[in-house]
Amino acid sequence: IINNLKLIREKKKISQSELAALLEVSRQTINGIEKNKYNPSLQLALKIAYYLNTPLEDIFQW
Rank of each mutant, 00 (worst) to 15 (best):
N31D: 15
L46D: 05
E10K: 09
K47N: 07
K11N: 11
I48C: 05
K47S: 08
S26R: 06
Y38I: 15
I8R: 02
K11F: 09
Q16V: 13
L7Q: 15
E34Q: 01
D58A: 09
D58I: 07
E10T: 11
I1D: 07
N36E: 08
S15A: 08
N3A: 04
K13R: 13
Y51S: 08
K11E: 12
K13P: 02
I30L: 13
N4D: 03
F60G: 01
V25D: 01
I30T: 00
K35C: 12
E57V: 08
N39L: 14
E18Q: 12
E57R: 12
L22H: 12
L42E: 07
L22P: 01
N53F: 05
K6E: 10
R27G: 07
T29H: 10
L44N: 04
I2R: 13
T54D: 02
K37G: 07
Q43S: 13
E24C: 14
L56H: 04
T54H: 06
K37C: 14
K12L: 07
L5V: 09
I33N: 00
K6W: 06
Q28I: 07
Q28C: 12
I33Y: 06
L23H: 00
A49V: 04
S26Q: 07
L23R: 00
A21D: 14
R27Y: 10
K6Y: 07
S17V: 12
L7V: 15
R27P: 15
K11D: 07
P55W: 04
L52E: 00
I33D: 01
Q61T: 11
A49G: 06
S15D: 04
I2H: 13
R9N: 02
P55R: 08
R9I: 03
L46A: 07
L46G: 06
K6M: 08
L19Q: 00
I30S: 00
P55Q: 06
A49I: 02
I1V: 10
I1T: 12
P40K: 01
K6I: 05
L44G: 00
I48T: 02
L7F: 13
Y38R: 13
V25W: 02
A45V: 05
P55M: 05
G32H: 14
L7A: 14
K37A: 10
A21F: 11
Y51W: 10
T29P: 02
L5P: 01
K6T: 08
Y50G: 07
L7Y: 13
T29E: 08
K37P: 03
Q43Y: 12
I48E: 00
L23N: 01
S41D: 09
I59A: 01
K6D: 02
E24Q: 13
L46V: 10
R27F: 08
A20R: 01
R27W: 15
K12Q: 13
S17Y: 12
L52R: 00
A21G: 11
Y50R: 08
E34S: 04
E10Y: 05
P55I: 03
Y50T: 07
N4C: 09
S26F: 05
A49N: 01
S17M: 12
E24V: 08
L44I: 06
I33R: 01
S26V: 02
F60I: 03
I59T: 02
S26C: 06
L19P: 00
E57H: 09
Q16L: 11
K12A: 13
K47I: 04
L19H: 04
L42S: 07
D58L: 13
F60E: 01
I14L: 13
S17H: 10
L19S: 00
T29F: 14
D58E: 15
K35W: 05
E57D: 12
V25N: 02
S26Y: 03
K11I: 10
V25R: 02
I30M: 06
A21I: 08
R9M: 06
I33E: 00
Q28H: 14
E24N: 15
K12I: 08
R27T: 15
L52P: 01
T54A: 07
A20S: 07
E34A: 01
L56D: 03
I48F: 05
I14W: 05
L52C: 03
E57C: 10
L56F: 10
N39W: 11
W62T: 13
L5C: 05
E18V: 09
Y50P: 00
A49P: 01
K47C: 08
P40V: 11
S26E: 08
N4M: 05
G32P: 01
I30G: 00
A45K: 12
E57Y: 09
S41Q: 05
I30P: 01
K11W: 08
N53E: 15
P40R: 01
T54G: 02
V25Y: 02
I8V: 09
Y38E: 09
L22G: 11
L5I: 08
W62Y: 11
K35E: 15
A21L: 10
K37N: 11
Y50A: 09
L46T: 11
I1E: 07
L19D: 00
E24S: 12
E57T: 10
S17Q: 14
K37I: 11
S15W: 04
I1H: 12
Q43H: 13
E10I: 10
Y50Q: 10
Q16P: 05
N31V: 15
K11Q: 14
I48M: 07
F60P: 01
G32Q: 14
I30C: 02
E34I: 02
Y38N: 08
L42K: 10
A49T: 04
N39V: 14
L22W: 13
E18I: 06
L52V: 04
K13S: 10
L52M: 06
K6R: 13
L23S: 07
I2M: 13
R27M: 13
K11S: 14
Y38T: 10
S15V: 05
K37T: 15
A20P: 00
Y38H: 09
S17T: 12
P55K: 07
K11A: 14
I48A: 04
E18F: 07
A49S: 12
Q16K: 07
Y50F: 14
K47G: 06
D58K: 09
E57P: 07
S26A: 06
A45P: 03
I1N: 10
S26M: 04
L42Q: 08
K37L: 15
E34H: 00
S15F: 03
I48D: 00
L44Y: 03
S41E: 06
W62Q: 12
D58Y: 08
L22S: 10
L23P: 00
I48N: 00
I30A: 00
Y38C: 13
R27S: 14
I8Q: 06
S17D: 12
L23Q: 00
Q43L: 11
E10Q: 09
Q43I: 14
S17C: 11
P55D: 08
L42C: 15
E24L: 10
Q43M: 11
N4G: 04
S41Y: 04
E34Y: 02
I48L: 07
L46E: 13
K13A: 06
